[in-house]
């Protein structure tokens, strides 16, 4: 069942110097449980695409459909998306726990069930002992995990990940990316990841959307279903990256 469907989406930017085409005739579907990576050259419009999907930007042409329990609509259902940005954006004046509870406070749904869900996530992903610490006391990887739990707090159907690992060093990035992808799989979430890291894209996802240079169009949509015994780590070792690099950047 497709959960998001983009149909000929076009989006232009307006500046004093003129009109810039950012997205042109983008069409693809995201099925429930998919981990879709969007890759393409730097500045091609990957983040713009994510903003259009999340409703932060409105396309001039084309439509985006959202499927909430079989009900298809152009309006975004409440708490349909959880957004993870390039930086963890944790508030330094709040503790880890208060950072995670923030979305619940904003939506005024700080119920016992939701707080229990957060406690479970903290316990499950080894952050229980750090809940009263300030974000500055955590490592980069831990901060990203906190940011992910904060995103999961509203129990969104789809996670939008905008290069969430780009600020981390290479070694941490691999471990955190694997970590986050595993959490997303365990929590049975659908995810759309924007990244410029091809290795990350092909190892984490079952679908890769390759975009062209600006204005971004879909160059190719590649299906990469996970085999039964395949893990993210084994994928990282098996994929021939150079072939992918040629495919994406040629």
């Amino acid at each position: 069942m497709d959960i998001i469907k983009l149909d000929n989406v076009c989006l232009n930017y307006f500046t004093k110097t003129g009109e810039t085409e950012a997205l042109k005739n983008i069409s693809f579907k995201v099925n429930e449980g998919d981990f879709v990576s969007v890759v393409g050259p730097s500045g091609c419009g990957k983040t713009t695409l994510l903003s259009a999907i999340s409703g932060l930007l409105t396309p001039q042409h084309g439509k985006i459909f959202y499927n909430q329990n079989g009900e298809v609509s152009e309006n975004i259902p409440k708490n349909f998306f959880g957004y993870m940005l390039q930086s963890d954006e944790l508030f330094p004046w709040l503790t880890v726990y208060k950072n995670i509870v923030l979305p619940l406070e904003i939506q005024k749904i700080k119920t016992k069930a939701n707080l229990d869900y957060i406690d479970n996530l903290l316990k499950k992903y080894g952050l229980e002992n750090f809940k009263n610490k300030k974000p500055t006391e955590l490592s980069g990887g831990m901060r990203q995990r906190v940011a992910l739990i904060r995103t999961l707090a509203l129990r969104p159907k789809v996670l939008l990940l905008d290069e969430p690992f780009s600020a981390l060093d290479y070694v941490t990035r691999i471990s955190v990316a694997n970590d986050v992808a595993n959490i997303i799989k365990e929590e049975h979430k659908t995810a759309i990841l924007v990244t410029h890291d091809i290795e990350e894209a092909v190892s984490l996802s079952n679908k890769v959307v390759i975009l062209t240079r600006r204005p971004a169009t879909v160059k190719e949509l590649v299906e990469l279903p996970f085999n039964e015994n395949e893990t993210i780590t084994s994928r990282r070792e098996n994929f021939k990256l150079s072939e992918w690099q040629t495919k994406i950047f040629d």
Partner: peptide
């Protein structure tokens, strides 16, 4: 104030007052 943090609040559908 960090624009990223403002964007994060917007993605959580926070009101201007929040």
């Amino acid at each position: 104030v960090d624009k990223g943090k403002v964007l994060l609040m917007q993605t959580m559908q926070a009101s201007k007052l929040q």
